[in-house]
Amino acid sequence: MADRTRYALAFGLLALLLFGFARAGLAVGSVALREMPADVAAKIVDLRLRRMLAAALLGGALAVSGFLLQTFFANPIAGPFVLGVSSGAKLTVALAMVFLLSRGVTLGAAGLYGAAFLGSMLVMGLILLVSGHVRQMPLLVVCGVMVGYICSAVTDLVVTFADDANIVNLRAWSLGSFAGIGWDDLRVIAGIVGVGAAWSFLLSKPMSAYQLGEGYARSLGVELKPFRAQLILLSSVLSACVTAFAGPISFVGVAVPHLMRSLLKTAKPIWMLPACFLGGAVFCLGCDLVARTLFAPTELAIGSVTAVFGAPVVLWMLLSRRKEALA
């Protein structure tokens, strides 16, 4: 079947890119490994490996989270960043850091994640509340962006009035980076993202029915309430994980699913979910590579790089959709 061939080729391409970026990521950097003593080199490799694993896992999580939200809202411009969910997580994480650190309590990986998840769910709740009144997606997106701005503004306020010692940490984090994620954090990330992504994959059957709309999904035997709750919960779990450990990263959740849809030429979740995960990993690996090598040794904020690559994709999608609508 032609479809199968296309899927095989697409996944082959993604695997190839993943491998290529991983090779490049290990080898390339602001310091040349060959000039280093062996133990230093090993440390640097370890550093880069952690960073790449984080980028791959979190990138995949973001893209899957975006796809889940798009399915939920039946609209391809939905995503954790666009709807303000990431910014919500950022706010709660910042608040938690500042207030707990000022009391001398250090936030562990779990605490950080808990704060981010709380923030995600709060904003998600708000968006769901609004979506009950506002049916049009563009309006909903505007609401999401506004919520995002409010959250960012409050975060900035918190950061401004925080102790000097915390600021350094917060600044770096609030710009977004895959750097400095330890193995312990990685274990938590792998656990959350692994379970979240696998669970999402198991939802691919009801998701396919849900693509036809609520009415048809219900008539095909989908139990809507638990299904919708799972979609929201999973997308929040995944995007909160990203925000907690790498800060707010924009556009991956919207751009990657769109790229994958165009690559596979299908919206079937059973193919889209793995493709989004792989695609998100490749996208973030690539962006991270650019972020740390383009102006080395100065690092760019990962959010800026994903925006540079992701925003045009989203723009292209919006414009082509507009053309279709006119045709």
């Binding site: 391809p76 198991l202 691919s204 059957k205 396919s208 029915a209 693509q211 036809l212 048809y216 095909l220 035997g221 849809r261 596979l264 030429k265 299908t266 919206a267 079937k268 059973i270």
Partner: peptide, 22 residues
């Protein structure tokens, strides 16, 4: 539904008969 073929849509009619992953 962007990027679903007619066959995909008709196949969804088999939903109540298929297994876990459809």
């Amino acid at each position: 539904v962007p990027k679903l073929t007619v066959r995909d849509v008709v196949s969804l009619g088999r939903y109540p008969y298929t297994g876990m992953l459809g």
